[in-house]
Structures are given as C-alpha cells and as structure tokens.
C-alpha cells in the first residue's frame, strides 16, 4: 500500500503540500452562497459548503442537479454569478482557472477532455508541465528530466504503461477515464474534484479506481461526484446531496442512506 501511495504522489511533493497547507487554517474548500445563472436558469443557487483538509466528500444528486456546474465554478471554468470560493483560506472567486490549479486544485471532467491527437505520454507530460516551472522552455526535454520521470510514474500509477505511446483517440473508454485521473494527479495536488470518474467503467476498472482513490496520501482531500452509492460509500467519509441546484442534505454516508427524504427523492423519480 505504502508503495502504491508513493507511486502516485511523491513524498517530496507531500511535504511541500503540507508546508503550503500549514500557512492557512480552517477548511480546504469553502463555498459561501455560490450561485450560477444561465440566463434565467439557476444551475446552482446559494450553495454553501465546506470541506476540511484531507476530507473525502461524495456529492450525490439527480441529473441536472448542478453538480458539474458546482465544479466548474470552483475550478474557474466559468465565474459564479455571486458568492465566494476559498481554497485553503485564500479567496479565489475571481482567479483565472490556471491560477487555481497552481494553488493545488485539480479536477477531472465528466466527459473526458483530453488531447486526442497526442500520445498518452504527451498528455501526462503536459499535465506535469502545467504545474511546474519551464512551461515556456525552448529546450527539448531529456529522459532524465524530473518532469519526464514524473510523467512516467503517473502513467504507471494509472496502469497505462503499455499504452504510453498510443494516441489518446485510439484508447478505449476505460483507458481514457484512467488518463483523466492521471491528469488530475500531476504535480502536488492538495484538493481534487472528481466528476463521475466511475461512470461507464467495468467492475474491474471500478475496483482499480477505488484502489487509486484510497491509495491517495491522507493530506489530499477530494470531492467525488458519483451516482453509484456503493462506490461513493467506499471512497467517501461524508456526503452532500444536491437537488435542483441547492444543497439538500449533508451528513455521514449512513445518515444520508437512511434519510427518509433522500430515499424518497432517490428512489421515487430522482433518476427520472
């Protein structure tokens, strides 16, 4: 297990991350009154949410509940209409997306957003490059470069070594989902947003995913959107239910599972 962990996030990164983390106090992620309007439609309204450092949270909710929109607001894919977003105490509501990533935030996309015309290796290399120095370097990378080495570790961690030189567009669906994960683990992540990483995976692929998630170092917190209760309960210690763009319930997995309202919503018409 210990080895699996180091394969994903290196110890050096970890201490760096802890140093950064120790500067701030309080919550890893904190949303206050976040609202996003698309024209007249409130995709999310007045969402207030806080996640402790190292906490693993599952977000549940029917289609169109606003889960992905919530992620988009946090990562800066678009700006919220109102509300504030803090990451490790720092207000980054109006930061451009890349500035948030450089502060340790990561995400995966519900619909894979990869570089189809590049190899797996180049995809992961880009992810490692994006959060390190030398983004504008005009020197060609050598195999001994730290970033290249790091990319290879990541590829290995998500079991894509054999597909390393394959074009991403030629990968299977499951492999593409794994690559999505790899891109989110590059550098020294402190907080990760996983958008339905398990959707469409085979049972084997699912258990690999669960292994990767539970193998993450303890200091890395995440939010995972997951429709499958079984998966959600295995990888999360707390649950947020969303409905119609609002936070509907929060609690431990047991509380949520046994909540009468949640059951009604989820079993009666929630999937419809």
């Amino acid at each position: 297990m210990a080895q699996a962990r180091t394969a994903i996030v290196r110890t050096a990164d970890r201490s760096a991350a802890e140093r950064l983390g120790s500067v701030s106090t309080g919550n890893a992620l904190e949303l206050r009154g976040v609202t996003k309007l698309f024209g007249a439609l409130a995709a999310i309204s007045d969402v207030t949410l806080s996640v402790r450092p190292g906490e693993r949270r599952a977000v549940l909710g029917s289609n169109g509940a606003g889960k992905t929109t919530l992620f988009n607001c946090v990562t800066g894919d678009f700006l919220p209409t109102s509300g504030t977003i803090r990451l490790f105490g720092e207000d980054l509501t109006n930061f451009p997306a890349h500035e948030r990533i450089r502060r340790g935030l990561r995400r995966t996309y519900q619909i894979s957003l990869l570089f189809g015309g590049m190899t797996v290796a180049d995809n992961v290399y880009l992810a490692c490059l994006g959060v390190s120095r030398g983004r504008f370097s005009l020197l060609r990378p050598r195999p001994s470069d730290a970033i290249v080495a790091r990319a290879h570790e990541l590829i290995e961690a998500v079991h894509l070594t054999r597909a390393r030189d394959t074009l991403v567009s030629a990968l299977s669906y499951g492999q593409q989902r794994q690559l999505e994960i790899a891109l989110a683990l590059a550098g020294a992540p402190r907080f990760i947003l996983f958008d339905e990483p398990a959707a469409g995976l085979s049972p084997t692929e699912r258990s690999e995913l669960v292994a990767i998630l539970s193998g993450l170092p303890d200091h890395i917190g995440y939010i995972i959107i997951e429709h499958d209760m079984d998966v959600a309960l295995r990888v999360a210690e707390s649950v947020t239910m969303m409905h119609n763009g609002r936070v509907f319930k929060e609690g431990t997995p047991e509380e949520i599972e046994n909540d009468a309202e949640v059951q009604e919503l989820y079993l009666g018409g929630g999937h419809g």
Binding site: H98, Y109, L114, F115, L126, L129, G130, R135, L183
Partner: peptide
C-alpha cells in the same frame, strides 16, 4: 525545434483544448 519543446507542446495543447490547458495550470 520549437514544436517539440515544452513551449511548443503546450502551444499545441492550447490550440486543441484551451479549457483543459487552463485546468492543467497553463495560462492560455
């Protein structure tokens, strides 16, 4: 030469998928 450097690769990434590039920490 440039096309195979980190800058060149990132530039092609920006061309193909600016949104993802921003989500990887690049200033598009």
């Amino acid at each position: 030469w440039m096309s195979r450097t980190p800058f060149g690769l990132a530039l092609q990434g920006v061309r193909d998928n600016p949104r993802r590039m921003a989500a990887l920490g690049f200033s598009v």
